[in-house]
Every structure is written in structure tokens, then in C-alpha cells.
Amino acid sequence: MTTTASRRHTETEEPHWVEWATGLISALLVIAMIAWVGWEAVTEENTPPEFSTAVTGRGPVEGGYRVEFEIANKATKTAAAVVVRGEILDGGNAIEDADVTFDYVPAQSKSSGAILFSQDPGSREVRIRAVGYTDP
């Protein structure tokens, strides 16, 4: 293994200015990133997940009816295994419900999905809400 001895790299003594410029920019970026995360660490309040849902689209599919929706988590904590239930309400009574589970709804982010009903809700109200989650 004599080759290993010859495979040593020696950095040049007088580096090009570009190397220093890149180093400086990188250093600034790293410091900025650490400062940002650090600032967040200090100021962030740990609010439990808080969901809001909005229907984004609907339409018939084969053998049923699809209601697409978005679920947003405004809080600073991520929720895992979020179960979302969609219900078709007729005069306050749920005549059909269907569940969907999201692996994650990250903090301050949105996830989207769809619920498939067996019937067209028509003019009846569709209620979509999160019914539970676990901490990741």
C-alpha cells in the first residue's frame, strides 16, 4: 500500500481569493442559520397542534363522490396520525361519515387529501374536522 502514502493532499499555501470569499459567505450563512434557529428556540412557544380545514374541490367519482380538502396546522408543534372525519349533515344529523388519516400535519404547514362519500352530498352541508392526533 505504498500508494496510500503518495495519496496525501496538501492544501496550497496561498489560496485564491475566491476560496476566502466562499468561506466568508458560508460562515455568514452558517451563523445566520444558527442565529435564526437559536432565536426560534428562545422565542418559540410550544403551542399544541391547531387545525383548520377548507374544502378545495368536489366532484363525482366512480361509485361515489369526492370532496377534496386542505388541513392546516397553525401551531408550532407537528401532529402525527391525524384522523380527519368528513360528515354529510342533514339537519344536524350525520347521514354518512368517512375517515382519512394523515401521517403528519407539520407545524405551520398544510396537508391535503380527499374524502370519498358513497353519495353526492348535493346541497347538504359537509363537515370536515380533525378528530384526533398523536405527538410524533
Binding site: 492544501e11 489560496p15 476560496e19 476566502w20 466562499t22 468561506g23 466568508l24 459567505i25 458560508s26 460562515a27 452558517v30
Partner: peptide, 8 residues
């Protein structure tokens, strides 16, 4: 500065 930080 020249290698490690840019590398990161």
C-alpha cells in the same frame, strides 16, 4: 473557512 464551512 476555506473548505469545511463551504463544504457544509
Amino acid at each position: 473557512f476555506r473548505f469545511t464551512l463551504p463544504g457544509y
